[in-house]
Design a protein around this nucleic acid. Structure first.
Lengths: 278, 278
DNA sequence: AGTGAATTAGAATAAAAATTCCAAAATCAC
DNA sequence: GTGATTTTGGAATTTTTATTCTAATTCACT
């Protein structure tokens, strides 16, 4: 019998729906197209097939087949859809934010607008205030470590766990001290190891204690915290301060996470560079 | 002496400035072009000369002259400006990173700058694209749930763990399915519960399976994922899409986390409001 | 391993778009 | 009003872009 020749979608929304339904059992190259378009739908309106194909890492002809597979007559047809959508969709960010906020002060959308703004500002602030030398020191210390211990509880835990993920991905030995089973992992600390201790007010006792233990044992420590008055700041450590902006009683985490991402990748890069050299 | 042959504007902002300054003493047809572009700047990125010319009620050649009058080599050149402005939010960070590396400027601080910008743009994009209605739906569903199950592994785990922290702080019953001890927690799922399932490409099988189990049992599901082609998007769920910008092989998490923050706080607020009312 | 069907890559072609050019029209200076 | 100068419209040309086609490859199945 015939192919599922449903006609082309008439709206971008319907297009996504189609992608969701049929996107999975497409052949490899077409799948790449689907994923790329799903990830960067904005690009479709303002690019040529060649550009999109290159970005999706497929030859242009594959992209054409993709368009046709979805029921369009060709790329131009599909692009038309996105270009039409584009016209409405492009009030700039500032306008959109105002709109979200005005939607009533504690609608979810308004809240999101607040957190978005807080996050962006926190990150900007981070990038402005961090001291490159301290970062270098931190990276240097961590790169030389045999195992990196990650400590962070409660609000800091997502950051610690992100670091664990990131290090694992780069095959850098790291231990996440998660406190599971209430096991004390003090005795894992060993000469030549380093620790990233993360804590924000109100500081978790466990985190501080473990960091102090590390200090006693002479480990290199990177302290990621919020204020100079933090107990972590009293340690003999490379101190990285991250201040986040509050949204009501809640505090963004974006800056801390951003710093964690950069830190881990920098360590990875540093290690790789060093490996190659010898 | 010669004409004011200042070069072409390099940003859309500078372009407007030029229009303001020189727009008045242009010949009639060119003036029409200027007026049209000023009135509908967003059309420029997605239209052909012919279309714009028609809309401005001038012949295409007039539009060409207009572009050249402003210092561009031609229409394509001018359009490039508008297209870049539009797509600028999603620059190719992989390329930028390579450049960084080549320039020997591959310092941790430079990396941080890249991650910072990627994070800010990801968040901005989130705020621009999220659908307030879907958010409302998600919040409504979660607010009505007895227990909220949180599922997210690997890169999604920090987000899940943040949600766990946040819900705990607000005394909302939530379970973080962390996979510790490889225990299957399927049988914790109960009527009246809801789940927040979080997964990004490459999707973790465990997460998807647990979410599917939840679907079978008829739980309300909020799927936080990256693409319409994600396996989570196939579930009968409130689908929230978050796309993050890559920095090389790494991907920001800021937007997902921002959404998680807003979502949890909104649920908290909703619940409190509801409590007070009765 | 061998066969047929599906998928792919890249070259060839067609279509569309941008750009140039120039004769005609309009405008200006006197 | 006349000649010089600018502006204009549209056809001709060039360039870019979309699309199609086919041989080669991969894949699934035996």
């Amino acid at each position: 019998m015939d192919h599922d020749e449903a006609g082309a979608p008439h709206t971008v929304e319907a297009f996504y729906e189609r992608l969701r339904r049929d996107g999975h059992d497409l052949p490899k190259r077409l799948r790449q197209c689907a994923d790329y378009v799903a990830a960067y739908p904005d690009k479709v309106a303002v690019s040529t097939v060649a550009e999109l194909a290159e970005a999706a890492d497929v030859p242009p002809s594959a992209f054409m087949r993709f368009c046709q597979e979805l029921g369009f007559s060709g790329f131009s047809h599909m692009q038309k859809l996105f270009r039409e959508e584009y016209a409405q969709k492009w009030p700039n960010y500032a306008t959109r934010l105002t709109k979200l906020r005005d939607s009533g002060n504690d609608t979810p959308a308004a809240l999101l607008a607040e957190f978005a703004e807080a996050g962006r500002n926190s990150i900007e602030n981070l990038a402005r205030t961090i001291d490159p030398d301290l970062l270098d020191q931190a990276v240097g210390m961590l790169s030389g470590a045999r195992t990196i211990h990650l400590v962070g509880n409660r609000r800091a835990f997502p950051v610690a766990s992100y670091l664990a993920y990131s290090f694992e991905k780069m095959s850098i030995p790291a231990i996440l001290h998660s406190g599971v089973g209430n096991l004390k992992l003090d005795n894992l600390l060993a000469q030549g190891d380093a620790m990233i201790a993360i804590s924000f007010a109100p500081y978790t006792a466990d985190t501080v204690e473990l960091a102090e233990e590390a200090e006693r044992q002479g480990l290199g420590i990177v302290a990621l915290t919020d204020l100079p008055t933090s107990p972590l700041a009293r340690l003999d450590a490379v101190r990285l301060f991250v201040s986040e902006i509050d949204v009501g009683a809640f505090r963004s985490l974006s800056a801390a996470l951003t710093l964690a991402m950069a830190l881990s990748v920098a360590v990875g890069a540093h290690r790789r560079r060093h490996e190659n050299r010898k």
